[in-house]
Amino acid sequence: MSTLTLADRRAHEAGSYVRTVPPPQPSRTVLKSFPAGAPRGQWPAESFAAARRREGIPARVVMDLDSDSFLVIVDGPAADDHGKTSDQLPQRPRGPHPYRTAVTS
């Protein structure tokens, strides 16, 4: 029979605690939900996620077992803006067209 030293006992007690606060859940944004019982299965969700990835949004498909549906989600704290800026696009100059619009013969 072995006895623990005081340092070992304190280390054991420090490591044997009951977590009272649940671990933080990663922030996610659900872009769209697709029913899992659809005839095409997860294809609509995968094609929707692929279209968002082509736009530069890091979307992925997960299955929610509680609602029996495929969810297209975006992970991360800044899931609302997806790294896009709110800068305005440059405006083209207004006025007469620089070229003649009609061709005369």
Results as ranks from 00 to 15, higher is better:
residue 53 R to V: 06
residue 73 I to G: 00
residue 40 R to Q: 15
residue 42 Q to Y: 11
residue 68 D to R: 15
residue 57 I to D: 01
residue 71 L to P: 03
residue 78 A to I: 07
residue 83 G to Q: 07
residue 46 E to R: 02
residue 78 A to C: 11
residue 76 G to I: 06
residue 64 D to N: 13
residue 36 A to L: 06
residue 54 R to Y: 11
residue 76 G to W: 04
residue 76 G to N: 06
residue 84 K to T: 14
residue 52 R to H: 13
residue 75 D to P: 05
residue 51 A to L: 10
residue 71 L to A: 04
residue 86 S to I: 13
residue 48 F to W: 09
residue 76 G to P: 13
residue 57 I to G: 00
residue 40 R to P: 12
residue 86 S to G: 15
residue 54 R to S: 15
residue 86 S to F: 15
residue 40 R to M: 11
residue 70 F to W: 11
residue 50 A to K: 10
residue 67 S to L: 14
residue 74 V to S: 02
residue 66 D to P: 11
residue 71 L to F: 06
residue 52 R to F: 08
residue 60 R to K: 12
residue 38 A to M: 09
residue 59 A to P: 01
residue 41 G to H: 01
residue 60 R to T: 06
residue 53 R to E: 02
residue 85 T to S: 14
residue 35 P to W: 08
residue 62 V to Q: 09
residue 59 A to V: 04
residue 59 A to N: 04
residue 77 P to E: 13
residue 57 I to W: 02
residue 45 A to I: 03
residue 83 G to E: 06
residue 41 G to R: 02
residue 76 G to M: 07
residue 36 A to D: 05
residue 82 H to A: 07
residue 43 W to N: 11
residue 81 D to C: 06
residue 37 G to P: 03
residue 66 D to Y: 10
residue 54 R to H: 12
residue 90 P to A: 02
residue 88 Q to F: 11
residue 67 S to D: 15
residue 72 V to R: 00
residue 52 R to K: 13
residue 58 P to L: 00
residue 63 M to G: 04
residue 45 A to T: 04
residue 57 I to H: 04
residue 52 R to T: 02
residue 60 R to W: 05
residue 42 Q to M: 13
residue 70 F to E: 04
residue 45 A to Y: 00
residue 73 I to Q: 01
residue 68 D to A: 11
residue 55 E to N: 08
residue 74 V to K: 04
residue 41 G to I: 01
residue 50 A to C: 10
residue 35 P to N: 09
residue 90 P to H: 05
residue 59 A to G: 05
residue 79 A to K: 08
residue 84 K to L: 13
residue 62 V to W: 05
residue 39 P to C: 07
residue 46 E to V: 02
residue 88 Q to D: 12
residue 72 V to Q: 03
residue 48 F to I: 01
residue 69 S to F: 01
residue 40 R to K: 13
residue 41 G to M: 01
residue 80 D to Y: 04
residue 70 F to L: 04
residue 78 A to S: 15
residue 39 P to N: 12
residue 89 L to R: 09
residue 57 I to P: 00
residue 48 F to P: 03
residue 63 M to Q: 14
residue 81 D to W: 07
residue 77 P to S: 08
residue 59 A to L: 05
residue 89 L to D: 12
residue 49 A to F: 06
residue 82 H to Q: 07
residue 60 R to A: 04
residue 40 R to T: 13
residue 53 R to Q: 11
residue 72 V to H: 01
residue 75 D to N: 08
residue 50 A to T: 08
residue 77 P to R: 09
residue 54 R to G: 08
residue 54 R to F: 08
residue 61 V to C: 04
residue 61 V to K: 03
residue 48 F to K: 02
residue 86 S to N: 15
residue 88 Q to P: 07
